[in-house]
Computed example of a mutant assay.
Amino acid sequence: MFGLFNKKTKKEKLQAQYAKLLKEAHSLSTTNRKMSDAKVFEAEQVMKQIERLP
């Protein structure tokens, strides 16, 4: 209840985006390897952004 009005930090948003991209990459890995690799690359870029945050 008390966490209802707390906004997500930038790091939390990026972590959620990273997890989403990896999940999409995993589901694409069985049907379209090229798209899966692209999603993994995007996820790596997001992880680099997370690492740069203080």
Rank of each mutant, 00 (worst) to 15 (best):
A25K: 09
F2C: 11
M1E: 05
R33F: 09
K10L: 03
M47Y: 03
F2Q: 05
L28A: 15
K8V: 07
F41G: 12
E42G: 10
K34F: 07
M47H: 08
M47I: 03
K10C: 06
F5Y: 00
A43S: 10
F2H: 12
S29F: 05
R33L: 08
K39C: 15
L53Y: 05
E24H: 07
A16W: 10
M35V: 14
S29H: 00
A19I: 11
L22C: 09
F2E: 13
L53F: 10
K20Q: 05
F5R: 04
R33I: 08
S27C: 12
I50Y: 02
K39T: 12
L28D: 07
K20A: 12
H26W: 15
P54M: 01
F2T: 09
K7G: 00
K11R: 09
L22E: 01
L28M: 14
F2D: 08
G3I: 03
N32P: 14
K8L: 10
K13F: 00
L14H: 07
L21F: 11
K34R: 08
T31Y: 09
F2P: 14
E51V: 08
L53H: 05
E42S: 11
R52H: 04
L14C: 02
D37G: 13
H26Q: 15
L4P: 00
K20L: 07
S36C: 11
F5P: 06
K48M: 03
T31F: 14
R33G: 11
T9Q: 01
K20H: 04
K20D: 06
L53V: 10
S27L: 11
Q45Y: 01
K8P: 13
E44C: 08
K48P: 02
M1W: 06
K39V: 14
M35L: 15
E42H: 02
I50L: 04
S27W: 06
F2N: 12
F5H: 01
Q17M: 03
V40Q: 00
T9W: 02
H26K: 15
K10W: 02
K13T: 03
M35H: 12
S27Y: 11
N6T: 12
K7H: 06
T31M: 11
S29T: 03
K39Y: 14
T31S: 15
Y18K: 02
Q17T: 08
N32D: 11
E44I: 02
L22I: 06
